[in-house]
């Protein structure tokens, strides 16, 4: 599955970039994130419980940040598995400074979904993924609002 999109943050690029390196922020933004532990500078361990309508799936796995070019770009590599299958994904994230303390985040990526989720859940995957992205950005906006405006 290919993913692609963009989101406008109302904060300077450095702040947005920093947020992507903060496990607390990421952990709080991803719906169903039960645990997110920083292993080292760029590796995290996470436990995720996705509850979407009738579907409830627990995933545990790793998140790595690679090819970091602060504050311009970063590559996210995700690997998770659970009873309903596995997800392996890579996301290329770019932060564009639009000036005026706004940052445009652009992402493209590819997810390899396997197991039951892939074999019988095709119908739901796309809409659920889209809505998850939406939720993540909404939450990140809130986090930024709190952090950035408080500063």
């Amino acid at each position: 599955m290919k993913v692609e999109g963009e989101h406008l943050f109302k904060a300077p690029r450095e702040v947005v970039y920093e947020m992507f390196n903060d496990p607390d922020a990421l952990g709080a933004a991803v719906p169903g994130m039960q645990k997110m532990i920083k292993l080292d500078e760029s590796h995290y361990e996470a436990v995720l419980g996705i509850r979407v309508g009738p579907v409830s799936a627990n995933f545990s796995g790793n998140l790595s940040l690679t090819d970091e070019v602060p504050p311009e770009s970063v590559t996210l590599v995700i690997e998770g598995k659970g009873g309903a299958g596995f997800v392996k994904g890579v996301g290329y994230v770019k932060f564009e400074d639009l000036g005026d303390e706004t940052t445009l985040l652009k992402y493209t990526g590819e997810a390899n979904i396997g197991g039951t989720l892939a074999s019988v859940g095709q119908r739901m995957i796309d809409s659920v993924a889209k809505s998850m992205f939406k939720t993540v950005f909404e939450k990140l906006d809130k986090i930024l609002e709190e952090r950035w405006q408080k500063n």
């Binding site: 390899n112 979904i113 396997g114 892939a118 074999s119 119908r123």
Partner: peptide, 12 residues
């Protein structure tokens, strides 16, 4: 392309 069968039910 990853070899996952996407049609393993009568829904698809």
């Amino acid at each position: 392309e990853n070899g996952q069968l996407l049609t393993a039910s009568f829904m698809d």
